[in-house]
Design a protein around this nucleic acid. Structure first.
Lengths: 464, 464
DNA sequence: GGGTATTTGTCCGTATGTATG
DNA sequence: TCATACATACGGACAAATACC
C-alpha cells in the first residue's frame, strides 16, 4: 500500500502525494478508479484526514485526479503509453580528464593578476548595491544604461573618432552577442557575409549559425583585398582593421577609404571589430573606420581585452538606420548585462579610473611584448618568424621546422607551457608550409617570459 | 591655471591629475616642457606638496611625463596626431518625453524594495572579488561555472523533478538568450515552431527573429490544445505549463502526457519555460514537464522573477542529444554571464540563502496576491473577472465595460497608477469582447494595493 | 418515491516544531 | 534571546451527495 515514514524530513502529505502520483503514472491506479475517501485512507494510514486531503489537493491541482463534490476523487484518464517508467539516477559529475600542470600560460585573452584594480571595483560595486536598489529591482532598457552609454560614447569620440549619438550605442554581453545582434539586423540586407581569411573563428561561427553564406576574402599586407569584395555577392563584411586577427596587420588608410567607398556604392554594411583598439605599442591607436563611414559601419568594441575578460561587457555603435530598427524592438527586450556590472563600470569610466588603467596596462603589456619578441629572437633566431607585432595580446609565430603545430603544442604542454590551439583560423586550408603558433602574452608575468621561451627552445629543438 | 574644488567629492590629487593630463593631451603643455616643481606648484595652489606629488606620480606611471632625478618632470613626446582637438558637441541626450508621475506601479516583472538581501549579496560579491582574482582574469566555460551548475541542478532535482546531469545544464544571461540558443539547436530539426495563443510575446519575437515560421496553438482551460499540434508541421513547441502566460492556467497532467507523447511520436522537441515555477500560492509548485520526457524537453528557468530582475541569470537544461551538439561548439565560445555574478550566486545557493529567500518572498507575495484579489472583488464586484490566480507575479483582468484597454490604461496613468501595455500577447486579434488588463503586483507595496485599486475604481467607473 | 442514515468533500480552530528577525 | 509567523499535522463541525429502507 503506502509506506509513510514519519522520521523522513519530507512531510507526510508530500510522501503520500508522491506515492499516489507514482501509482497513477504507473497504471497501478487505473483511469476512473475511485480513490479512498480522505476519512478511510486517514484511518488506514493512521494519519489525519487533512493530511490526506492536502495530498489530494495537490494531485487535483496538477490534474491527476478529478474531484466530484460530496462524492469522491477519481483518477483522470492519462495517455502514458510512451513515457519511460523508470529513470536511473544518473551521476552528478562528469569525469574530467587531468591535464598537464600549467607552469607558464600563453592562453589567448587571459590577463595577468596585477592588471585589475579589484579593491576599486569592490568599492564601486558596494556603492552600486547601496545606492541603486530601486533600479536593481527592475528590468532595464535593452540598449543598456544611459549613463554608461554616455561614458562609452565620450570615450569613443575622444579616442576612436566615432561619430554618433547615444541612441546608436548599445551595451551587450560580449562580442558574440554583438555579432548575433548584427546578424539579426543584416538578415534583411543580405544573405552573404564576407569575412577575412585568415580571421576570427568566432565571427565565422556566428554568421554561419545565423544562416548566412560565408565569403572569405584574402588579406594582403595592407589589409583586406577590397577588390575581391566587389566581385562577391556579399552586402556585408566583417573586418578587424585596427589589428587584423590573427596576423596583426593594420588596414591602411587607402584600403579603409576603398572599403568605405565599396559600402556606399553597394549600399552594404561593414562590421568593424575593434577588439583591441587600446593595445598599440608603437604609435597611438589608429582612428576607426566608423569615423570614415558612420552610416555604413557597425562598430564593435569590448572591455574584455583591456579590463577584465570575465566582466562580459561589450558595446556596439549602430548606423542610424539600423539603430532605428533596434529601437522598435527594444521595448519588449531586456538588457543582457546586469545592472550591478553596468553601474560600477559607468562610475569607473566617469571617475577617470578607466583611462588611467588603460595607460598603466598598456605600459606593462608593452614591456612584456618587447621582452617576448627579444627572447624569441635570441632563442630561435631565424628558425621562427614573427607576425602581428606592435599590437594586441598575442604574437603569431611561423616555426620553420618540419613538424606540425599540434606536435609543438603537445611538447610544450608536457614541459608545462600552455599554448592555445588555434581553432579554425583559416577557412580554407592553411597556405603556409610551416606550422604557425599563437602566443598570448596577456596572462603571463613579465619575469616568466624568459624561462618559458627557454623551455620552448629546449623541447622544440630537442625533438628535431 | 588650475581650478581645484575642495568641496568636490573627487580628491584634490585626482582633480589636479585630470587637469594636467588634459593640458598635455591638448597640447597646452607641449612635449619636453618642464613641469613646475612640486614645491612651487603646491605653494601656488595652497595644497600639500604630497598632493601634487601624487598627481605627478600618477602621470608618471601612465607615461604622460618623464621624471629626471634631481632635475624635474618633463612632458613626454606623444603621438597625438589623431587625437581629436575639438569635437563639435552633438547633443548626447535624446529628448525624453515627460511621463505622468507614477504613484502606484503595476509594472510586470518588477520586485518590491524589501525583496532582495542586498547586504548578503554585497558580502558574497566582496568574497568573490577577494578570493577568485585568478579566475576573474580569464575567459570561462561557455556552459557556465561548474559549481553554479551543480547547485542549480541540485535545486532542480529536489524541487522540480528535473532528470539530467550537469553536462546538460547551461547558464545564460536571460530567457531571451535561452531562446536564442534553443533556436540555434532547433534550426536543423524544424522550420516551424508552435507557440501558445495567447502567449509570451518575447518568445514569438525570438523565434521569428531566427527565421522560424510561427504556428499559434490555442489554449483551453487545461492548457495547450495538443490536437492542433498533430495537424501542424511544427517539430517544436514553446509552452509555459506550470503557469501559462498570461492566462495563468496550469497544464493538466493529461495534456502534459499527450504533449510528451506527441514529442516522442514526431521526434519533436518541447521548450518548457518554467519562468515562475517558484511562485504558487495555493499548493506546492507542480513538477516539470522535463521530468516526464527528459529526452524531448528543453527546460528554461530564470532567477529574474524570484531573485533580482537586473541580475540577468537564467539557465536551461538540454536533452542529452542537444547537449552534445552544444558541447562541440562550447570550446570556442565564452559564457555570457560575468564570473562576479555567477560565483556569488553559487555561494548564495550553496549556503542555503536562496531557499530561505524563496520562502520569504513567496510569503510576502502571497499576501499581496490575496489583498489584490480581495480589493478587486470588493471594489468592482462582477464588473471584472480575474484569471491567472494562485500563481505568478500578475493577474489578468477582464473589465466588463464598453471601453478599450488603452483607455483604461491611459485613465489610470493620469491618476498616477501605472499599468503595463500588453504588447502583442495575441497573434491573431483578441477574441474577447471585453478589454483585458495585466496587473503585475511584484513591484507594489502591500499597503499601497488598497488605495491603488480604489483609484482605479474611481477613474474607470467615473468615465462611464 | 420519500425520508433517513451514511458517506463524502469542505471548512474551521488548534497544537507543535522550525525559520526569521 | 525572544517574539513572531509559518508549515505541518491533527480532530471536529457542517452541508451536500448518495445509499438504503
Amino acid at each position: 500500500m503506502f509506506l509513510l515514514n514519519a522520521k523522513d524530513k519530507t512531510p507526510l502529505y508530500r510522501q503520500l502525494y508522491q506515492q499516489l502520483r507514482h501509482k497513477i503514472l504507473n497504471g497501478e491506479l487505473s483511469s476512473q478508479t475511485k480513490l479512498l475517501s480522505s476519512r478511510k485512507l486517514s484511518q488506514e494510514l493512521r494519519i489525519s484526514r487533512n493530511t490526506v486531503d492536502m495530498a489530494y489537493q495537490q494531485l487535483l491541482s496538477e490534474g491527476y485526479i478529478l474531484g466530484k463534490p460530496r462524492s469522491g476523487y477519481y483518477v483522470e484518464t492519462l495517455h502514458n503509453t510512451i513515457i519511460p517508467t523508470f529513470m536511473e539516477s544518473t551521476q552528478l559529475e562528469s569525469p574530467s580528464e587531468v591535464p598537464d600542470p600549467i607552469k607558464y600560460n600563453f592562453k589567448y585573452g587571459k590577463l595577468s593578476p596585477h592588471a585589475f584594480p579589484f579593491s576599486q571595483w569592490q568599492r564601486l560595486t558596494n556603492e552600486c548595491l547601496r545606492n541603486y536598489q530601486e533600479q536593481l529591482l527592475d528590468y532595464h532598457s535593452f540598449m543598456g544604461e544611459l549613463g554608461l552609454r554616455k561614458e562609452i560614447l565620450k570615450y569613443l569620440r575622444d579616442y576612436r573618432d566615432i561619430k554618433c549619438t547615444v541612441d546608436q550605442v548599445l551595451i551587450t554581453s560580449g562580442t558574440e552577442h554583438c555579432l548575433s545582434l548584427a546578424c539579426e539586423l543584416l538578415k534583411s540586407v543580405t544573405s552573404t557575409i564576407a569575412i577575412e581569411e585568415p580571421g576570427y573563428a568566432g565571427a565565422h561561427f556566428a554568421f554561419k549559425n545565423h544562416g548566412f553564406c560565408i565569403q572569405p576574402i584574402t588579406i594582403s599586407h595592407h589589409g583586406l583585398n577590397v577588390k575581391e569584395l566587389h566581385t562577391s555577392a556579399a552586402k556585408a563584411v566583417y573586418v578587424t582593421p585596427s589589428h587584423q586577427f590573427p596576423t596583426g596587420r593594420i588596414m591602411s588608410i587607402t584600403r579603409r577609404l576603398r572599403l568605405a567607398e565599396w559600402a556606399y556604392e553597394h549600399n552594404a554594411f561593414i562590421i568593424e571589430d575593434d577588439y583591441s583598439s587600446h593595445l598599440r605599442y608603437d604609435v597611438k591607436p589608429i582612428s576607426s573606420l566608423q569615423g570614415l563611414a558612420p552610416d555604413k559601419v557597425i562598430y564593435i568594441g569590448s572591455f574584455s581585452k583591456i579590463l577584465l575578460p570575465s566582466l562580459r561587457v561589450a558595446y556596439m555603435v549602430l548606423p542610424k538606420e539600423l539603430a532605428q530598427i533596434i529601437h522598435k524592438t527594444a521595448e519588449s527586450r531586456a538588457c543582457a548585462v546586469p545592472f550591478m556590472i553596468q553601474k560600477p563600470l559607468e562610475l569607473f569610466l566617469q571617475e577617470g579610473h578607466f583611462e588611467s588603467h588603460v595607460r598603466k596596462t598598456l605600459r606593462h603589456l608593452k614591456k612584456k611584448h618587447e621582452t617576448l619578441i627579444y627572447e624569441l629572437q635570441e632563442n630561435f633566431g631565424d628558425t621562427i618568424s614573427i607576425t602581428g607585432m606592435n599590437a594586441g595580446l598575442h604574437l603569431l609565430l611561423q616555426v620553420k621546422l618540419p613538424v606540425s603545430a599540434e606536435d609543438l603544442i603537445a611538447w610544450a604542454a608536457k614541459a608545462g607551457v600552455y599554448i592555445p590551439i588555434k581553432n579554425r583560423i583559416w577557412i580554407d586550408s592553411e597556405p603556409s608550409p610551416y606550422p604557425s603558433i599563437l602566443l598570448g602574452f596577456g596572462g603571463i608575468a613579465l619575469e616568466d617570459i624568459p624561462p618559458a621561451i627557454r623551455i620552448l627552445r629546449e623541447v622544440w629543438l630537442d625533438h628535431i
